[in-house]
Amino acid sequence: MKRAVAYVRVSTAKQGKSGLGLEAQRVGIAKFAEAEGLELIAEFQEVETGKGADALNKRPQLAAALSEAKRNDCAVVVAKLDRLSRDVAFISALMAKRTPFIVAELGADVSPFMLHIYAAVAEQERAMISQRTKDALAAVKARGVRLGNPRIRQAQEAAAERRTAIAKDFAANVLPIIREIQATGASMRKTAAALNARGIPTARGGTWAATQISDILKRSAV
């Protein structure tokens, strides 16, 4: 029986807490694996947005899934393509890592070329939605309606809270990997080296050091 690694993702902490989006993905992947005769040897779960050029850097669980799949010479399975990304460049970057991934919704035999096509269509759809929003705001402004947020201080505080939430989400995603490594008796320095060896970047896209491992563990203890 062929093996595979499952990867599930939701974009917000609220979705993650409800469990509904994650469970639907698990069911879809499980049904696909059964139909294709795949043994799911591990599952990696993430709560993080798929947007942005640095999206991969912000998704340590995806990096861990790719590393596990590479170690076992198998593919990563996702329920839908958008659980990876709607960005063509992101999909291309994943393909460049030489670790195959399968989109259950599309089937096991979809070629890399077709995956690019599906990603391009999804990216275009997102761009069209964004443009329609901009056009609507421009029309409202043309009618003399004042746009923007008059409560600047509240907006700044909300932005700071958002940055804190992003940091907490990243810590929550990478913490299980750190604990798994430290369960072998690894020191913080060796844990940092193991994360770097697996290709898992820090929140800012850099390499790990012992002090950063300590910060993550302290954050989890708060």
Rank of each mutant, 00 (worst) to 15 (best):
A42F: 06
Q124E: 07
L84F: 02
Q61G: 01
M95D: 06
A104E: 04
A120M: 13
G52P: 08
A89R: 11
L115D: 08
Q131G: 06
V110Q: 12
R132T: 03
K97S: 02
E39S: 07
T99E: 02
N57T: 08
Q61E: 03
C74R: 05
S85F: 05
R59K: 02
G107T: 12
A55N: 05
G37R: 04
V78R: 02
K70M: 07
K58I: 13
E125V: 11
A120L: 13
V76F: 01
D82S: 13
K51T: 03
L38E: 09
R86H: 04
Y118H: 11
E68C: 03
E68G: 00
L81P: 10
E43H: 15
D109I: 03
T49L: 13
Y118S: 07
G37C: 06
E43R: 12
D82K: 12
L106N: 08
E48K: 11
T99M: 05
K70N: 07
A119Y: 08
D73M: 06
I129L: 00
L115T: 08
Y118M: 15
S67G: 01
A120S: 15
C74L: 14
K134P: 05
G52V: 03
L40C: 03
V78Q: 07
K134Y: 08
Q124M: 14
E125L: 13
T49F: 11
E125I: 13
S111M: 14
E125G: 14
A104C: 01
A65H: 01
E39G: 04
V110E: 11
G107M: 13
Q61N: 00
L66E: 00
G50Y: 06
A53T: 11
L81V: 00
L81F: 10
I102Q: 02
A119I: 14
R132D: 06
L84E: 10
K97Q: 08
T49C: 10
G52D: 10
T99K: 02
L62N: 12
L94G: 05
I117L: 14
E43T: 14
V103Y: 12
Q61P: 03
N57D: 09
K58V: 12
S85P: 00
A65K: 06
E48F: 13
A53H: 04
